[in-house]
Every structure is written in structure tokens, then in C-alpha cells.
Amino acid sequence: MARYGMVIDTRKCVGCTDCVVACKTENQVPEGLNRDWITDDATGSFPTLHLEIRTERCNHCDNPPCVACCPTGASHVDPFGAIVLVTPEMCIGCKACLASCPYDARFVHPDGYADKCTFCIHRVKDGLDPACVSVCPTHCMTFGDLDDPNSEVNRQFASRPHHALMPAAGTEPRIFYLT
């Protein structure tokens, strides 16, 4: 079974938000809500400042707390690529998953269920990249099977130093940022 993840090159990302627009269009994300977003992370003090621009989304964690806390099984790990998904018809809108996600990647859809990035599973099943990956003008995102040692995503992973977000939270995220 595949285990999909992403490697994102923070030196290539310019924060153009094409990925955000592509996601909203592809997935018809309601107005005022986002499944993915851009974070500008500035650290240091003048003149030694460092700016990291990241495109962020659900990390499709290997140890997803949103799945563990869901009382109905609506939040689940799909057998296809171990992608973390929500079944709207099973979600009661208790918001435990929103509270359990350290990345604040989830939101309540206006129809009442918890919603989030799906890695565009409908596209991936057709052999396509997620919408955000496919439109990126700088090709900063690489999507693929982390368990396949020959995949491009693993080649990128091994090519440079990288970090994940909030490793201390223990969720084992599957999105990595090349630095």
C-alpha cells in the first residue's frame, strides 16, 4: 500500500498562492475558508533575518490525532495511500478533530461537517498530482509515495536538509519542507 506525502522546497516557493486558488477551484472550497494556505515565517533580527515561505495544508499524519478522537469514525485513514479523509455523512460536527489538530488544518464546512485537504484523492486515483502541486509555477512541491524508495518524493527528501511542522506534537506528519 502506498503512503502518500509531499516534499516542499522552501527555496523555490514564492508564496504566489496559486496552490491556494487551485485547491479552492478544484475542490469548490466555500468562500472564506481554505484547505491550504501560505505561511510567511520570518525569524532572527536585523540584519540577520531569515524568511521561509511555506505552502501548508493537512499533514496527513502517520499518527493522526483527528482520527483517534473522532467518535463516529467519520475521520479515517483511507486504504488508498493512507490519506486522512472525512466522510461528511458520518460527521456529527463535534469539532473534536479541529481541537485535536496541532496544525489547525481543519474547519467546519458550511454544510456542518469537518473539512480539510484530501490530497485531491480523486485526481491521484486518476494518476494525476493534487491540484496544488500541478499548478505550482516554481515546481516547489513534489507529491508521491514515501514508501517507494525510487519515487521522486523520496529522492527530493534525501537531497537536502528538511523539517516537518511541530514534530514535538508527535503526529508524525508526512509533509516535509526542504530548507
Binding site: 483517534a68 478522537c69 473522532c70 467518535p71 463516529t72 456542518g112
Partner: peptide
């Protein structure tokens, strides 16, 4: 009142999720 998807509340009783305290509570 806190639930966002109120009509689906019965879903709590279609499963028992052992890792979910809310399921235990239900």
C-alpha cells in the same frame, strides 16, 4: 446545540471508537 451536523447525531451509536473519549462518553 454545539454540534454542527445535528441531524447526524445518531451516528454516535452506530459505532464504538475505542480511541475516542467522546465515543466512550456517548
Amino acid at each position: 446545540l454545539d454540534l454542527e451536523h445535528k441531524l447526524y447525531v445518531w451516528r454516535l451509536y452506530t459505532t464504538f471508537e475505542v480511541t475516542s473519549p467522546m465515543s466512550w462518553g456517548a
